[in-house]
Amino acid sequence: MNAIAARWNAFWFAPAPPLTLGVCRVLFFGSLLLWQLPHDFSPWGAYSRVFWMPIWLFETTGIQPLPPTAIAWLQTIWKAALLLSAVGLFTRPAMIAAFGIGTYLMGLPHNFGQTQHFDTLVVFASGALALSHAGDAWSIDEWIAARRERGTQTEQRPRRAQRVIAGEYTWPIKFVWVMMALIFCAAGISKLRRSGFDWIASDNLALLLLRQQYHLSDGEPLTTWGIWVANHPLAARAMAAMSISVEALFPLTLFSRHARMLLVPAGLGFLVGIRLLMGPTFEQFMLCYVFWVPWDRVLYNAPLYAAHAARGVGDRRRELSAAGTGAGAATGH
């Protein structure tokens, strides 16, 4: 039992510096803001009650659609909260507002006839960040605190060191990993439970790819490659097998570094493939991939790689220049 508890704690609360979580916060909220900026939720408030088919969350809590003007105000506050969360100003209250208002706004359309699934992970990720200390790095709050701290002895640094040791900068990232793994795995299990091996072995995916060309999706397929795949049964079945494999095996990413290196890019490729071939818009889900990148290592190594690349380019230029001079001399030019 103790061993299980130790592994559990090691998974969620491994000590880590605040940098990676801070970068994830900037990229997640920043890209979510850019994605949501042109989206207007207010028209949902104008539809008559006949369209209102509340999902569990709204029915249980008794939440109703607000009038369009109220939704417009709410989404303005939400987008401001996303901006503040991204830049890290009043970070904690901004992230709490981003989560609370975002859950209402993103959940609202699902009460109008169909529950879609591209935003659930965004809700979970926002929730985790709202509970976290993600504003301790790469934030205006942190910059202001550092300026105040200069020359004075404050409690800021010891508190941050405690959080490093307590794994406060690890668990939000691991939470997004776990939720993404559960989502992929659930989708794989749903296919296997409802269709079994037929999902792969039959013409199911070929017919699905063709059907999606008839303007049935929340987004049009970005290419017509689905038609090509549908007309090559082996390719369609291989794609179906790959899809279920990636989905069902995705939880391995939580435990194995090798599985992460294979399945995380494969999962992203799978979502891009859906968008290109079938249409459904999983862009918001894709935003959550920023949590898989070890930003501390990337940012630490980036200057080294840049210097190495610059040196390589310089050496190559010198080589070419020398070769050019040599060639010119040899040809008399």
């Binding site: 569990w56 699934h117 989708a187």
Partner: peptide
């Protein structure tokens, strides 16, 4: 399905 929790059933049936 209890959004945001879900069994993610999209495209899980066999289309014949």
């Amino acid at each position: 399905e209890h959004w945001p929790f879900s069994q993610y059933p999209m495209f899980s049936g066999v289309w014949t």
